[in-house]
Simulated assay, not measured.
Amino acid sequence: MEKIAVLIPCYNEEQTIAKVVDDVKAALPEAVVYVYDNNSTDRTVELARDHGAVVRRERKQGKGNVIRRMFREIDALCYLMIDGDDTYPLDCAREMADRVLERGADMVVGDRLSSTYFTENKRPFHNFGNSLMRTGINGLFHTDIKDIMTGYRAFSYEFVKTFPVFSKGFEIETEMTIHAVNYNMQVENVVVEYRDRPEGSQSKLNTYSDGLRVIRKMLQLYRNYRPARFFGAVCLFLVAAALLFMLPIFREYFATGLVPRFPTLIVCGFMVLAGIQSFFAGMILEVLAAKDRRDFEYRLARVCAEKRGALDGDGR
């Protein structure tokens, strides 16, 4: 088992990948650098290999697919993941790795938003999206993650081997963050510098389509991990809307003894029934979610035992 594995997912990054690999080797000389190519059509693979990286491939397109392959194939005490676009200086790489190796952190978030991101990044909708996701996830899950969408993170062996990757694209960062929060894993924030892509380097993130996928993923995971709150909110909305429409009917009934709008009354009755059904669905799913959290602790214990066995086999 390696001590530190640096994971670099790449797609057409020939302009920057050589510098990123060199910077990683200078900052963490003991680390093994893995570049996972995702069907690049330029010289990314050639340059990465020439500069000493271990190059592997993932044929299925999408960052989530690349990370699934990385986490499945590599065993290490600490994983440092960084983008291949040279937007993250490696000054904090050692600190992030030490948070995992020495402090027992499960995920260390490279926090761009507390440093230079909003001045360096030239895409205003990306700035808005990052702020929106940070506010949304911290509010929904009652946590304090400083940067949800950062591609600069460090992970423990326990996190990597218990994280089921379902996302295919850029929503993977949201999935990783919420997974760590839901299962009460130790998450720490490290402020890192951010610099915009060099001229000529193109972002693979589509502001609108990928942004909508990220928001949908956040709501989907909130439904899965906090079903009582999610379906409770649906129940509250349906019942409140039904009562709002029923009030004039009741007022007229008490004044005249007549019910002139039977269709409205019937629809409101069904809305109340749907709200009650939503409430009990949330209660049932909450029990299943609690069971999943208990089962996760058993899975985590098995992964820890596997890690100890591997370390004993390495003589550490």
Score class of each variant (00 low, 15 high):
residue 115 S to E: 09
residue 58 E to G: 04
residue 137 I to Y: 04
residue 277 Q to H: 05
residue 85 D to N: 12
residue 312 D to G: 00
residue 166 F to E: 13
residue 54 V to G: 07
residue 242 A to T: 03
residue 14 E to S: 09
residue 162 T to R: 06
residue 127 N to Q: 07
residue 112 R to L: 12
residue 314 D to C: 05
residue 106 D to N: 11
residue 228 A to Y: 05
residue 186 Q to A: 08
residue 120 E to G: 05
residue 87 T to K: 04
residue 243 L to Y: 09
residue 306 E to Y: 08
residue 113 L to D: 12
residue 93 A to M: 15
residue 172 I to N: 05
residue 19 K to D: 11
residue 175 E to I: 01
residue 67 I to G: 00
residue 97 A to K: 04
residue 309 G to T: 11
residue 156 S to P: 10
residue 27 A to V: 01
residue 169 G to E: 12
residue 29 P to A: 00
residue 125 F to T: 15
residue 62 G to W: 15
residue 239 V to K: 05
residue 130 N to H: 15
residue 91 D to I: 06
residue 267 V to A: 15
residue 166 F to L: 09
residue 289 A to V: 03
residue 156 S to R: 02
residue 165 V to I: 05
residue 146 K to G: 08
residue 152 Y to P: 03
residue 213 R to P: 00
residue 5 A to I: 06
residue 6 V to M: 10
residue 93 A to Y: 11
residue 65 N to D: 04
residue 298 Y to R: 14
residue 261 R to E: 11
residue 195 R to C: 06
residue 266 I to K: 12
residue 160 V to R: 00
residue 219 L to I: 15
residue 300 L to G: 09
residue 233 A to P: 01
residue 244 L to P: 08
residue 191 V to R: 12
residue 237 F to G: 00
residue 89 P to H: 07
residue 78 C to K: 03
residue 147 D to R: 07
residue 18 A to W: 00
residue 157 Y to W: 06
residue 200 G to S: 07
residue 206 N to F: 11
residue 172 I to G: 06
residue 164 P to Y: 06
residue 2 E to T: 01
residue 145 I to Y: 04
residue 11 Y to A: 07
residue 82 I to P: 02
residue 186 Q to M: 07
residue 267 V to F: 15
residue 202 Q to M: 10
residue 84 G to A: 14
residue 231 F to C: 07
residue 122 K to D: 06
residue 248 P to D: 03
residue 89 P to E: 03
residue 232 G to F: 13
residue 36 Y to V: 13
residue 82 I to E: 01
residue 225 Y to R: 09
residue 223 R to W: 02
residue 263 P to V: 12
residue 136 G to C: 12
residue 98 D to P: 13
residue 314 D to W: 02
residue 42 D to C: 05
residue 224 N to M: 03
residue 227 P to M: 12
residue 147 D to G: 02
residue 165 V to G: 01
residue 67 I to V: 04
residue 14 E to G: 03
residue 258 L to S: 11
residue 162 T to L: 05
residue 22 D to V: 14
residue 303 V to N: 10
residue 114 S to I: 01
residue 279 F to P: 02
residue 295 D to F: 05
residue 182 N to Q: 10
residue 218 M to S: 13
residue 243 L to I: 12
residue 167 S to Y: 06
residue 224 N to I: 00
